[in-house]
Design a protein around this nucleic acid. Structure first.
Length: 428
RNA sequence: GGAGAGGUGGCUGAGUGGUUGAAAGCGGCUCCCUGCUAAGGAGUUACAGGAGGUAACUUCUGUCGAGGGUUCGAAUCCCUCCCUCUCCGCCA
């Protein structure tokens, strides 16, 4: 959520920044509402002060011996009643305005960082780094895509999964299931070594949690909801982790707080019909290890670099070639001020494919979720950052495509041997 | 799911209609005193929003789980909801 003070004082700046996302907004009426709300608050609180004075005076007069039914007390009471009525009227107006203002503010995305490059679309994202040597086919070699390899080696069963749930769900089996589990363990172990505290949070989350991290109210259709409860299947661990500290004041010397959490993630993928229908790339349910920082505002730019390096460490540990893309202003997610996407090389598809998205949200989520820090003087909003470290299914896809061998087996990186007891997947 | 108890400041915990944003203790911070493994003394210490001021700060309002109600006045009375604890039931 954006700062209401900024809205009152400098709506032009907000418009200018949101224009970089491709949003053309006239904020004058919103600013007007915000100013009007402040005006109502001032009038209301002045009236309340008057009412408080009267209330105190009544108490003092009665204490001093005045009759509670006497004329002087009665006249004060009547004044008090008058004020009460006026206050009630103003309060009603104020609340209506407030909730309308809040609804509108909650629907506005974060301002892009001044560090994010300008752009009009995905095409304007900037490659900032490349690591590893992409696996290319040898002359005459026909590389398979991961879903072909997975089917051939019986690592997944898509058809039966439709029977269990519907399309875009998979059942991993045999080495497929073991590999997924091994990858989760490897990622969590790696992050623990790098100083992250592991969390295993609830994966059903309430509306306040989704609002806090920015999925609600705008993206309700993207999440699965439990009809009888105020609970949703979490679309990412970012949601429960943000709310882990919702409404808290964190001592400055506790920061940064760094968490790594594995959760299944659930997304309706509305509007993506026909895209990535095969394999492990786009599923309604997928596993992800998420990295998350709560930090001091002045540290968040450096934290963003570090968090991204921590995600890249997984790819490097697994010998997976990747590149780092800096998203342009138009391609930023709703809550993000600045984002690096990590794209892994998929040898079978012959492309780089997003496997992690590392963002700083600055105070955007902290303001929604009311997460502050206490320094020497007063409180401030913390900054929050999140990044996948990594999407597990896509990691498996990359390992299958990049590790495929001429004999049909898949060679796995050495780092997985302690978890799997082998560096090779052969047929069933 | 049933019965009972309860939700007060960083923590413990008083407070059943009138200057109570809240006693006391612990903890934190500042200063003073003192040398011997610590103690003593003084002061200070909630959050949010608004107004004024370059600022230190001053001032107003709200907040004692949340929301409503009664009243001139509510932490205190009434209603609804949420949550926690204990016992019972059920259960991986």
């Amino acid at each position: 959520m954006l700062d209401q003070r900024l809205l009152r004082d400098d709506p032009e700046r907000i418009s200018r920044q949101l224009a970089r996302r491709g949003l053309k907004l006239d904020l004058t009426s919103l600013q007007h509402s915000a100013l009007q709300e402040r005006d109502l608050e001032e009038r209301r609180s002045n009236l309340q002060a008057e009412g408080n004075r009267i209330g105190k005076e009544v108490g003092q007069r009665i204490k001093a011996g005045a009759s509670p039914q006497g004329p002087e007390v009665r006249s004060l009471r009547e004044q008090g009643n008058q004020i009460k009525l006026q206050v009630a009227g103003l309060e009603e107006e104020e609340k209506a305005l407030q909730s309308q203002l809040r609804d509108q503010l909650l629907a506005l995305p974060n301002l892009p960082s001044e560090l994010s490059p300008d752009g009009k679309s995905e095409a304007d994202n900037v490659e900032v780094k490349r690591w590893g040597e992409p696996r290319r086919p040898y002359p005459g070699e026909q590389l398979q895509e991961h879903w072909q390899i997975a089917e051939r080696l019986a690592l997944v069963d898509s058809e039966r999964s439709v029977r269990i749930a519907q399309s875009r769900f998979v059942t991993l089996r045999g080495m497929g299931a073991r590999l997924e589990r091994a990858l989760i363990a490897l990622m969590l172990d790696l992050h623990a070594k790098r100083g992250y505290t592991e969390l295993l949070p609830p994966i059903l989350v309430n509306s306040a949690s989704l609002t806090g991290s920015g999925q609600l109210p705008k993206f309700a259709e993207e999440s699965f909801r439990c009809a009888d409860d105020d609970l949703w299947l979490t679309p990412t661990a970012e949601v429960p982790i943000t709310s882990f500290h919702r409404d808290e004041v964190i001592a400055a010397d506790q920061l940064p707080l760094r968490y790594a959490a594995y959760t299944p993630c659930f997304r309706r993928e509305a509007g993506s019909y026909g895209r990535d229908t095969r394999g492990l790339i786009r599923l309604h349910q997928f596993n992800k290890v998420e990295l998350y920082w709560f930090c001091l505002p002045e540290d968040s730019d450096a934290a963003h670099e570090q968090l991204t390096l921590d995600a890249e460490a997984v790819l490097e540990t697994l010998d997976l070639p990747y590149r780092r893309m800096e998203l342009c202003s138009a391609d930023l997610g709703f809550s993000a001020a600045r984002t690096y996407d990590l794209e892994v090389w998929l040898a079978g598809a012959g492309t780089y494919r997003e496997i992690s998205s590392c963002s700083t949200c600055r105070d955007f989520q902290a303001r929604r979720a009311n997460i502050r820090l206490k320094a020497d003087k007063g409180t401030r909003l913390v900054h929050t950052l999140n990044g996948s470290g990594l999407a597990v299914g896509r990691t498996m896809a990359a390992l299958l495509e990049n590790g495929q061998q001429a004999d049909g087996s898949v060679l796995l990186p050495k780092a997985l041997v302690p978890y799997l007891g082998t560096d090779r997947i052969e047929g069933p």
